[in-house]
Amino acid sequence: MTNPIETPSTYNKYVDKKSPNSPIFKNCFNAFWVGGLICSIGQIIFDFCKYQGLETASANTVVSIVLIGIAAFLTGLNIFNKIGKFAGARFFNSYYRFCEFYCFTCYRV
């Protein structure tokens, strides 16, 4: 067996071979369809608000309130973090952390 620690460059190559890579295609695919699903839900809420006669600005606000509300509710049930892990997107997780903070604060009060 050759010695992998002969030089830093041989060691780096050896480590690259030993270290599993992130499943980038799976992550991208999951982020794509979960993100798309959330956008679609938002669009449905938006269209419903418009149908009910709300102006665009108000409908946008309602979409945010409802989505954050759902996220906070799922966070309380300890489901949202699992979706965040599965969907694998940082922004999505930031959403979760915001909701976790929100729920934590409510819980404490």
């Binding site: 599993p20 992130s22 892990k85 940082r90 997780n93 930031s94 952390r97």
Partner: peptide, 11 residues
Amino acid sequence: PLELGNQRPPT
């Protein structure tokens, strides 16, 4: 920071 909710690589 944990609040950022970064994804963790397999290593």
